[in-house]
Design a protein around this nucleic acid. Structure first.
Lengths: 205, 205, 205, 205
DNA sequence: CATGAATGAGAATTCATTCAT
DNA sequence: AATGAATGAATTCTCATTCAT
């Protein structure tokens, strides 16, 4: 009757994921997870500290990707402005989002729509806050290098942009847009906004 | 001990609003509302059919404003295309959102961030779906009048635009942007997007 | 807005009857009665001491008929055995039941099927107990007059007979037998049992 | 503090049975059952899905006996009409009822008198309906074999007979007739009615 | 006679989590 | 690692009835 540790973990997470997706974090009970996964209710607590811990474990891969995304921007060589001009950065970002969505559509669904009640309920907000700070630093760096251009955007404006990226993800998930269509949408979205950015940056010229 | 009907209603709603704002719908208990408002728990049920009913009552004003917004667009004279050119429409819409946000910032907060678990949990989605259908009809009408221009946008694209309007509201609320700043943001937002629209509509010319 | 006393009473009872019939005593709430009848909930208590009192009032006519039935048997002239031979008595009884059912089918429905939870929940039992005692006395009297015949029936046997009369009523009500068919059934029933009685009474002869 | 599963089950059911018997299903609270049985209120829900489930579990044995009774009649060899003449059938049926009553007097009491409010509230009606259908089929079969005799009884008449069997049970239970007396009563009852049936079946001859 | 406000006890059920084994 | 038993606080909601006006 004893399965291997990994086996149990995978099994519980797999079933829990299904139920979380259907009912959301708050309305999912540990009991149901136990029953559906065939693992003893109390045994689950040998693997996960709490319901929240279980949820976080499930959703960890996508959360980590986002964290790595942030980290990569902290790495100085990634802001080598001579290499990485603003629009290029937008493109890169969009590509990353797109990639994440392809790999983790379900988990994103969980994270963005089903996490109410969990400790990740505010993930979007927290992440975009960080991303905003990041971006502001980047802008500052750029200002040193191209002082002639306009780099003074309000934090709020930057934040909005970060969030709207998520909005895009949310819409694609919610309307079950196919991967192929989604890719196209990302490209269009970036083009659309790159024009916007360019106009703003070269503003007074 | 007997207060007037209005008194009770106001009192309960006022306290409930506070707690809903702090904890969200799901994590707020009727018990607490009763205690904080000084109204007997069971007595509340003489005024509101259920916790959900109470929440909806509190949030009704802003919900109604949105409904009226939709209704006004159903009224043919509001889509008098000869009078109401696309960008103008966007401006009008933005003004309406801005106005709603000024009047009902707290209620919007409830509706957009704290409604998980209630029957209004999907308000944003439902409203933007309706708004999208509305817009598509408008586009159709325009096509009859200006057949040379491009009016074929995908429902998804339209929907995104509707949702991003909400994203803007959400950001303003969440970051506690002052009314004055918010107004400015709305104007900039509309300008920014009007340019986008124009380019798209006059596309092939 | 003020209706006459009678008016209110009738109105409340009429609506209450409907609801009691649909849901039974226990699952009917005074609130619903108040709402459906358009009479203020607390005002109902000016007319009826309690929910139970209301139920009893509604059902009073049929209860009284049964009481009168009992009383009439207490009246010595109704047991004038020279006039009223056993089978005749059965017939008379059946006729009475039939008559009651014709006049009060709804109330019987209430009394027999919907009274659980009220003070009349055990009406059938209580009535048949009384009827049984009655009958035993009658048998005793008969024994004085026709000592040659067999009059020694167990109380239980008598009781069964009384109850089965109710069973008949219950079936007719539950299966919504038409008045006409019901009448025929009563006649057949009595004939069937009269034969039974005769055989038993003349047993050893 | 931990008892074995069986222990708990038995203990809860035993106490619940007592209370149900005293107060009836509707007026019995899970609270009281928990207190009296010394089992934590919420713990009961680890064994029984609901109050109704608990009640049904208690009463299951007798319900099953009735189900088996029905099933046995569905088995063709049990309606081997050459072997099983009508009166014999009646006798067999009575014997079965008698047997059930001997084994499950308390549970019958619950089922017939205390089940109001539970999902078994209409057990008698539902069972007799089924039994009636059964009997009608049997009559049809008999008609093929003994076409000269009268087999055309109205469903209602058949139903009455089925119900009266229950009435008998009810009376025996309610008046706490001893097992011995009850047996005698069943025999007399069957004899009494067998005569009735014979007369009816050979009616026109 | 009528009303709206109020009450307070009580209902079933849920749930995440812990504990002893 | 695994299990079944146990917990206890919490939850929404119901209801007959009373009271002040």
């Amino acid at each position: 009757m004893q399965r291997k540790k990994d086996d149990i973990g995978k099994c519980v997470e797999k079933e829990a994921k299904k139920i979380f997706l259907k009912k959301g974090f708050a309305k999912t009970s540990m009991r149901e997870i136990a029953e559906k996964s065939g693992v003893g209710l109390s045994n689950i607590y040998n693997y996960y500290v709490s319901k929240d811990d279980l949820f976080c474990s499930i959703v960890a891969p996508v959360v980590n990707e986002f964290k790595e995304m942030i980290d990569s921007y902290h790495n100085p060589k990634n802001i080598d402005v001579t290499q990485q001009w603003m629009p290029g950065m937008a493109e890169k970002t969009a590509a990353e989002y797109s990639c994440i969505m392809q790999k983790y559509r379900d988990l994103l669904n969980l994270l963005l729509f089903k996490s109410a009640g969990s400790s990740l309920a505010n993930f979007k907000e927290e992440f975009t806050d960080e991303a905003t700070e990041m971006m502001l630093k980047y802008m500052d760096a750029m200002k040193q290098i191209y002082p002639a251009l306009k780099w003074d955007f309000s934090p709020f404006f930057i934040h909005i942009n970060a969030v709207q990226m998520f909005t895009l993800l949310e819409e694609i998930i919610m309307h079950k847009i196919s991967e192929k269509d989604a890719e196209q949408i990302f490209i269009e979205y970036v083009n659309y906004h790159n024009n916007g950015w360019k106009i703003l940056i070269y503003n007074d010229l």
